[in-house]
Design a protein around this nucleic acid. Sequence first.
DNA 1: GTGAACTAGTCAACCTTGTTGACCATATCA
DNA 2: TGATATGGTCAACAAGGTTGACTAGTTCAC
Lengths: 148, 148
Amino acid sequence: MPLARLMAMAFRSLIDDLHDRLRARGITDVRPAYGFVLLYLRDHDATAREIAELMGTSKQAASKLIGAMEGAKLVRRAPHPTDGRAHRLALTRRGARLLTTVETIYRELEDEWAEVIGAPAVASMRADLLAVLRARNDGELPPVRPGF
Amino acid sequence: MPLARLMAMAFRSLIDDLHDRLRARGITDVRPAYGFVLLYLRDHDATAREIAELMGTSKQAASKLIGAMEGAKLVRRAPHPTDGRAHRLALTRRGARLLTTVETIYRELEDEWAEVIGAPAVASMRADLLAVLRARNDGELPPVRPGF
DNA sequence: GTGAACTAGTCAACCTTGTTGACCATATCA
DNA sequence: TGATATGGTCAACAAGGTTGACTAGTTCAC
């Protein structure tokens, strides 16, 4: 069985578990892509161009995604401090709360994975994936884009 | 960084590398989904319903995918031996050759991954992912469906 | 043996999310 | 200062998915 299929199924499993648990908490208007953007905004000021790079999509698709998240009141567009063309994205209060929930659920899921395969194995998997992805992408991480 | 993002990037990397190498061999009319179906047909007689289960899509989407592969002369639909409603899918000669190429490239990629993180780490990653996916899916593997 | 219930696969219509190239305003650079 | 580049949006389009209805065939209870 190729690693690609394993990665696809692992991704599927994690995303489905995440969204099942969000729904169990009454959060039903969140697309899978939102989680990646929220986590990115935790650590970065970002523009639409950077979200396009993160997700591996066109600027237009990123703009639409941001628009949808704005509509769900998870982010807001602020003027960029130094570039009149660009927006700076910021988390709203609702967005920050959702980010916290997503992080909590991801920790639960990884704890459950650790129960099956052991915490050292989870840590190794993470470190190995980071190493091989950076090695194959000039030291950077590739985009998120998991689809066909 | 959540495991989901790592899995998404790993999947992306493998699929992009696979298709880059297929194109380098002059094979340009293959969608990423085809590889999963070809590998499945290596080991199973399959019907459209089973391809839908494999891919985690509707019967209609599976039917369309099979139709596209039939059009690319990778598979053919044969009458089912015992069920007059169903088709039995078979690889064509071209499909069998492409399967061999896909398998070869996947072995190359996994060898390259092993160069970065070590062959034991690749084997552990594979075994751990299989274990955790089966544990979380009643002993079965979940569908492939990597997209949002 | 028969009829009800179920299933495999297809149909047409629709939906979601992506891409493309043009465009405008702004920034950068020679 | 003018040429080039960029950030983001626009409208139109594309790919691949879903849905519910449908037909033909299968299974099952009686």
